[in-house]
Structure formats: structure tokens, C-alpha cells
Design a binder for these strands. Structure first.
Length: 641
RNA sequence: GCUGUCAUAGCUCAGGGGUAGAGCACCUCAUUGGUAAUGAGGAGGUCGAGGGUUCAAUUCCCUCUGACAGCACCA
């Protein structure tokens, strides 16, 4: 006699075991039609699941966002059936729902190409139109293994073998096709609906391990209705429009070329943007008690051996050798060991701590070719790196202050939304478990004190310590990891850094590795995409353009440009023999925040007509007023008194 | 690095076994105009590099380099 409690608190009794389908039907025909799955005692479950005990049940309908992963997972099954129908001999592996959609990994001698997608998609729509029910079956392990083995599904067999003994082995059948699957699923293939689209094919390693065979993965996107699908496709187009590589070219900020793979050629405008950001960070660091240093690019391998980087990252380091000297130098891949050298130079007293040592450190890392991405992931980059040498007692307060600084900087760049990941000890690491316990505990305590909420990122810490990763969210909802904060008890030990305590003994400092923007290259890429190239005035490489209407106004136009430059603004003149409409268009496409138009009237009145980017209205003002307005608008956020 | 796709003018792209084409940008001339494209003319390419097949290769084949998407990697 199961008693079923519904979300509104009402309880219904059923004579024997009962399915969700029956319960929904007993509540009403509307719900019977709409319910596509249920949450049974907190767990998402098939509607056909038999309930033989008292339970809480909540029904999921298409209106509910929780239906999305189900729709996507079902779409993956439908795709797998379609693929096996069209390409016999293809082996199936796994096909989960993911953010925005789903994928399925197949094994096939000939990987799929984009040309195969229309046929697969058409077959999928057939299967959806067939509207055949999904049915769940529990199989024995042997039954499942022999079934998939006879079909030559080697990957499935391996999956089943690796399932823990406690795990019930279930398959889901849809018509003649079936797949090993934990479920749950919707009622039938028809519930997938038609708001899906196959997006791309890609290679993916079996079980995510590069030593394993490569599978052929097909990605799809799936939604509850066509409106959602359209919105998603529009978001993708918007992201493409914002691509920093495209905008970087259009705005003439930088380029990359074959002779310096993964390295950025900064053009004048891009470099101006870079320097504006660097100077801003420098001022913030000063404000927060950092001192700036500069360390060598080429450092003997012995130092990297001591730090452990040679053992851990040798294959990612650029090496320099000279003909007449028997030395191997590494182009520095990071700054920490160098900063320790400065710390070690001379005796340090506890009175000096914390020492906050900052460097705009240019680093080189041999990143795998497939990892490179515009200026976001490069082989040569510069970090806003700093290392805080402090006592254990100072970890908490230093963390709190760092988070405060990071928040301030992010919001100055227009990022007000960020999240934090806590990465704990990795499998390959230096330092004893005691030291790791100590470091992780200290960092957690510091987070609590700073009011930082985080999600755990298991096993993703650096080899020398746990870290916090600060992930910011951009204007179109994409996440980017920028800031980092790492507690390190290992490197000071390895590199033998010490200070003199109040009672004249030697003690090890703790080293806090930290960066706010991370790599300047990457951050600038993110910034460009965040604001779609329409940089705030203080960052814009060209802040204002002066356009003349007639040649008679050119001379006055030039004096306006000169006045703006004298006021410290980055100004250009456009005195070309073009119509004003064409100039407005060109200067707008160049994403210059302000356009000042001058004609005979303005020249005579000593005024300008001012127009803000993205706004098609204009007002005429005296030149002196405009200069004051622009000066105020062009001030860096930390320069407002 | 792996799988796949791609590489033609500064940019965006078309073409195709018989020495290359458009639009924009650029240069020249005319035009002096009031807020997102004035008109006409001109110049610009070893068709990514190397090899092969062929009477002939930018086009077909192979190798390399680079780019793009995904995977793997990211101290």
C-alpha cells in the first residue's frame, strides 16, 4: 500500500506497487500527458519505475528546466541508433548530456566527417517521429557482456567489466535498438522533440586518456523547443562576432604569424592597451604594498632542477645553449624560483614579512600546438605575477587582502561576476602529506575568513600546493579562469629560503603565489570579447577622433586634435577628402568611443559636435567643455579622487 | 601531441588540369559634403612550402608548415 506524497503535501494511497505513469494519470489527464519523468525521493527516475513503498514524488514536465538533460541524453541515444543504422559496424561507447546539448563517441575505422551529419540528423528525426517507447531492463553482468561481445562492441564490454559489482546493470531499449545505460529516460523517442541540431564532429580519446584510441565524437545541441534552439544558435553567432582574433585584426591591435608560433606581435594600438592595463595594475599593486622586481629570462637548469620544474615540466621548457660554454639554460617558464633568489639574497628578518614581490614576468612555455588559441593561450606571455613571502600566521590576512584587491581590479574592468574553485592535492606532487594537510587547511581557513565561497576541484592543485582559481564570467555568460592564489610550503624548502625569527632562529617562510589577471595576453583577449571590442574610454587605444566636414575646417580640426592630445587624450584626426557620413561610418567601425565633428560653423564658434559610439545623436559644445568631459571619462578607475 | 577540416590579393571570399576573379581596403583624379558607404580610373597574387603524376599543376597525389574545431595538456 504505497502512500505517495506530492509536492503540495497531499498524500495518495495506491493498492499495490504503482508507476509514475499511473500516479500521473490518477491525478489528471493533463499531467498524464505532460509528465515525462519524475523525481522519486529526490532522484530523477523513469515514469515507468515501479514504486512499492511510501515515497515522495514530483513530476517533471517539458516546462521544467530539469527536462533538458533528459532530452539531451535521449537525443544521444537516438543519434547512436541512427548512426548504427546508417553505418553498420560502428561501435558505440558513451553518450552523455552536456551543457547546451549532447555528444556520442563512436569507434569506426573511418572517422565521421561533417558531411555525414545531415544524413544522421535526418535519420534521427525519423526515429523521433516513430515515437517508440524507451523501456528499461535489468540484465545480469554475464548476459550483458555476452550480448555486447557477440555484437563486437568491445568498448561496451569494457565499460560493463569496469562497473563496480554493486552496480545494477541496466539497458534501455528503443524499438529494436538498445544501449547499456544507467538512465533515466523520457517516455519515448518522440519526447526528444525536434529542437535539436548536430553541430560538429571531433576526435576524443577513449576515457579521456591520450594513450587510448581516438574515437569519433559527434556533438549536437538539443532544447525544449525551437525558440530555445534559435536563441542558442544566436548566442554562438554572437560569440563568433566577438572573437578576439577577429576584433584584434579589425582594431589593428596585434597579429600572430608562422615564424613565431604562439607569440604575439603587438601593434601600436594593442600595445597601448596593454600598457594602460599594466600601468593600472602597477598602481594597484603599489597601493596594496607590493614591490616590483625584474628577473632574468635565461636561468641555468640547476635552479629548475632544485625547484622541481625540470623534473615535472622539462618537455614544456624552451632550452638555450651556447656554443662555447657547457651550460644548459632554460627560458623561464615561471617566475617563482627567481623571486626566491631575490628573497634569499641577504638575511631576511621576520620584521620584513610579509614581502610582496611582484613582477610583470615574461614567461615562455612550449604549449602543445593544439592548445594554442589566438592570444588567449600562447607560448610567450606575461603574468601579473607576485609571490608573498610570509609566516603561517599571515596566510589568512594575506588571503583576505588579496581577494579584496582582486575584486576591486575585476570590477574596475567591468567584471562583477566571478566564482572560485579550490584545487586540492594532485596525484603527482612534491611535499609530504603532512605539509599538504597544513597547506589545504590554512587555505580553507583563509577562504572562510575572506568570505570566499568555492567549489572543490579535486586533484587539480599545483605540484607544490593547493590553489584557488578565480573564474570570471563575461558579458555573454562564458567563464574564464584568470586569477590564481596558491599556498606553497614546498618551494621555500626546496630552494632553502629562510628568515630570522624574533628569537633568532631560522624559519621557513610560506610562499603565496598569486596573479589577478593571470596572463596579460589572455586577459586582453577576454576583455575584448567581453565588451565586443567597445572598450571603455580609459582603455580604448584611440579615445577620440576628430572628423572634418569640409577642407575649410581641416585646420581647425588639427588644432582640436592637438588640444586633445595636450590634455592627455589619445586622439586622431580624420581630414580625408570624404563625406562626413563615410567618416562617421569608418570611425564607428573602428570602435572609437568619441567622434568630434567639425565644420565651418564649429571652426567659427570654436566648438565641436560630439557623438558617442553606439549613439546616433550628437550635441554641439564648446571645445573647452568637451576636453573636460573627455578627460574625466578617460580617467582610469583608480584615478578618480 | 591526437582526430578532422582548411590554406587563392592587406581583409572577406569565388574559381578550377591549359599562367587567376569579386567586394572592401589601398593609390590617382573629379567632387567640398552636416553625422554609418560620392563617382570614375589605377595598382596589387610564385594560388602556404617542398616533392610527385602529367605535354601542362594554383587545381590531382604525397610530405611538411601553419590555422581552425574538438580531445588531451595548462607549473
Amino acid at each position: 500500500m504505497p502512500a505517495i506524497t506530492l509536492p503540495d503535501g497531499s498524500v495518495r494511497n495506491y493498492p499495490g506497487s504503482v508507476t509514475g505513469t499511473t500516479i500521473a494519470a490518477s491525478i489528471g489527464p493533463g499531467l498524464a500527458r505532460a509528465a515525462i519523468a519524475m523525481v522519486l525521493d529526490g532522484a530523477l527516475t523513469d515514469l515507468t519505475h515501479e514504486i512499492d513503498h511510501d515515497a515522495h514524488v514530483r513530476f517533471i514536465t517539458r516546462e521544467n528546466e530539469e527536462s533538458l538533460p533528459l532530452i539531451r541524453h535521449d537525443a544521444a541515444h537516438v543519434m547512436a541508433e541512427a548512426v548504427q543504422a546508417l553505418y553498420p559496424g560502428t561501435q558505440v561507447t558513451i553518450g552523455p548530456a552536456i551543457e547546451d546539448g549532447f555528444y556520442y563517441d563512436f569507434y569506426r575505422d573511418q572517422p565521421f566527417s561533417a558531411d555525414d551529419l545531415p544524413a544522421i540528423e535526418a535519420k534521427m528525426r525519423e526515429i523521433v517521429a516513430g515515437d517508440v517507447p524507451f523501456t528499461r531492463e535489468v540484465w545480469s553482468r554475464d548476459q550483458a557482456i555476452s550480448f555486447f561481445a557477440t555484437r563486437g562492441e568491445k568498448f561496451k564490454v569494457q565499460l560493463i567489466r569496469d562497473l563496480p559489482d554493486s552496480e545494477e546493470i541496466t539497458v534501455y531499449r528503443q524499438g529494436k535498438w538498445l544501449d547499456l545505460c544507467r538512465g533515466p529516460h523520457l517516455r519515448s523517442t518522440g519526447d526528444v522533440g525536434n529542437a535539436f541540431k548536430l553541430m560538429k564532429v571531433a576526435g576524443a580519446f577513449w576515457r579521456g586518456d591520450h594513450r587510448n584510441p581516438m574515437l569519433s565524437r559527434i556533438y549536437g545541441t538539443a532544447w525544449r523547443n525551437n525558440k530555445e534552439l534559435e536563441a542558442h544558435l544566436n548566442r554562438l553567432e554572437e560569440a563568433e562576432r566577438r572573437d578576439h582574433r577577429k576584433l584584434g585584426r579589425q582594431m589593428d591591435l596585434f597579429h600572430v604569424q608562422e615564424e613565431a608560433v604562439g607569440c604575439v606581435f603587438w601593434h601600436e594600438k594593442g600595445w597601448r592597451l596593454y600598457r594602460t592595463i599594466e600601468n593600472y595594475i602597477r598602481r594597484r599593486q603599489q597601493q596594496f604594498g607590493y614591490s616590483e622586481v625584474r628577473t632574468p629570462q635565461l636561468v641555468d637548469r640547476t635552479l629548475w632542477e632544485k625547484s622541481g620544474h625540470w623534473q615535472n615540466y622539462r618537455e614544456h621548457m624552451f632550452i638555450a645553449e651556447v656554443e662555447h660554454e657547457d651550460k644548459v639554460l632554460a627560458v623561464k617558464p615561471m617566475n617563482c624560483p627567481c623571486h626566491v633568489q631575490i628573497f634569499k639574497h641577504g638575511l631576511r628578518s621576520y620584521r620584513e614579512l610579509p614581502i610582496r614581490m611582484a613582477e610583470f614576468g615574461a614567461c615562455h612555455r612550449f604549449e602543445p600546438s593544439g592548445a594554442l588559441h589566438g592570444i588567449m593561450r600562447t607560448r610567450a606571455f606575461t603574468q601579473d605575477d607576485a609571490h608573498i613571502f610570509c609566516t603561517e600566521e599571515q596566510i589568512v590576512s594575506e588571503t583576505v587582502t588579496f581577494v579584496e584587491m582582486l575584486q576591486l581590479i575585476y570590477s574596475d574592468f567591468g567584471f562583477n561576476d566571478f566564482s572560485v574553485k579550490f584545487s586540492d592535492r594532485p596525484t603527482l606532487r612534491a611535499g609530504s602529506d603532512d605539509v599538504w594537510d597544513q597547506a589545504e587547511t590554512a587555505l580553507k581557513l583563509a577562504c572562510a575568513e575572506a568570505g570566499v565561497e568555492y567549489v572543490i576541484n579535486p586533484g587539480e592543485g599545483a605540484f607544490y600546493g593547493p590553489k584557488l582559481e578565480f573564474v570570471l564570467r563575461d558579458a555573454i555568460g562564458r567563464d574564464w579562469q584568470c586569477g590564481t592564489f596558491q599556498v606553497d610550503f614546498v618551494l621555500p624548502e626546496r630552494l632553502d629560503a629562510s628568515y630570522i625569527t624574533a628569537d633568532s632562529r631560522r624559519a621557513r617562510p610560506v610562499m603565496l603565489h598569486r596573479a589577478v589577471v593571470g596572463s596579460f595576453e589572455r586577459f586582453i583577449g577576454i576583455l575584448i570579447e567581453h565588451c565586443a571590442g567597445r572598450l571603455p574610454v580609459w582603455l580604448a587605444p584611440t579615445q577620440v577622433a576628430v572628423a572634418s566636414i569640409v577642407t575649410d575646417a581641416n585646420e581647425y580640426g588639427e588644432t582640436v586634435v592637438a588640444t586633445l592630445k595636450d590634455a592627455g587624450l589619445s586622439a586622431i584626426g580624420d581630414m580625408r577628402n570624404e563625406k562626413i557620413g563615410a567618416k562617421i561610418r569608418d570611425l564607428s567601425l573602428a570602435l572609437i568611443p568619441y567622434i568630434l565633428v567639425v565644420g565651418r560653423r564649429e571652426a567659427h564658434e570654436h566648438s565641436v559636435s560630439i557623438r558617442r559610439l553606439g549613439n546616433d545623436t550628437q550635441t554641439t559644445m564648446s571645445l573647452s567643455d568637451v576636453v573636460e568631459i573627455l578627460k574625466a571619462d578617460a580617467k582610469a578607475p583608480d584615478m578618480h579622487s
